[in-house]
Amino acid sequence: MRLEIEGLEFSYQQEDILKNIELELDEGEILGIIGPNGSGKSTLLKCINGILKPDRGDIWLNGKDLAKFSSNEMAQNIGYVPQKENRKFPATVFDTILMGRKPYISWKPTEKDLTIVSEIIDMLYLDSISMRDVNRLSGGQRQKVIMGRALAQQPEVMLLDEPTSDLDLKHQLEVLNVVKDQVAQGISAIIAIHDLSLAGRYCDKIVMLDQGRIFDAGGLEILTPKNIESVYDVKVSVKEHYGRRLVVPEEPIA
């Protein structure tokens, strides 16, 4: 698997949101997209997923232009976990995750489809609520269900927009460990994430956005006080802990 983005640009109402974005993602990698609110993280994920149409630029998956993928091909290759999902309709946890199998189902779910959904429910520790209406779940539980639905697509690339935003510490680690385990089995992931320490723990590559442009990109070495202070206007300390980078906010820069 290889995802390539070349010269991607997107504007909204004559305001430039993304400017000349270029990045590469290979199989078995987690790419973290970081940056302040309004820097273009969510917009970038929506452009990759085809929710938004870029003004210019190309996105290639395994050498094929994503713009030429059918809706079924897109769903079988790209799994998307939005930051929030406001649609409300009665459905159980099991049935919601089963929706992720839609690109593969011609008439009715097969035994394979049902087995895949059951395995995902076990993986996300949703067994005890699998028959509950998703509208009766907490925000964090719903987010895990949405992630399960994306995993059911068995995509080559997972796009996750702030997947831990409504989760407590334990569930943040559970969800990101699932992403890490799935990547170890051969898929790749792009995560828009605010928590820089979680980015430093789970991501192989980092792209730091600032006002729609790539400010810096590389490995964990780009998580430096200088870069973070320049982009976030916050003084920080960066500490090494068992090969991970921990970012400790100190104070805003006046």
Rank of each mutant, 00 (worst) to 15 (best):
D133T: 09
S71W: 11
D122C: 04
F215M: 08
V236C: 07
R245Q: 11
E111K: 15
D133G: 05
V179L: 05
M1G: 07
I193H: 01
G186V: 06
K235D: 06
V231A: 12
V236Q: 04
G139L: 07
I228Q: 08
S39C: 11
I30L: 12
S237V: 02
K180M: 05
G7W: 00
L25G: 09
V231Y: 00
L173Y: 10
N177Q: 12
E251G: 01
E85R: 10
N20Q: 13
R149D: 09
C47A: 14
I187S: 15
A75M: 05
K144P: 03
E162H: 03
E111D: 11
K102R: 08
R56V: 05
Q141S: 06
I214L: 03
I206K: 08
E162G: 06
I120A: 07
A150H: 06
L159W: 10
M1H: 11
R244Y: 07
H194V: 00
V157C: 06
T110E: 12
E29Q: 15
M131D: 15
I120H: 02
A192P: 13
P54V: 09
S138P: 07
R101E: 01
E221K: 08
I97S: 03
M208C: 14
K239S: 13
F69I: 12
M123N: 04
P225W: 08
G7F: 01
A184S: 15
A199G: 02
E240W: 09
M123C: 06
I120S: 07
F69P: 05
L173R: 09
D127C: 07
N135L: 08
E6T: 10
G200A: 05
G200L: 12
L18Q: 03
A184P: 00
V238N: 12
C203R: 12
M147T: 15
V117F: 14
E85T: 10
K64R: 15
S138L: 10
G140S: 06
I120W: 03
S118H: 11
Q141W: 06
P163Y: 00
I51H: 10
P252T: 08
D127V: 06
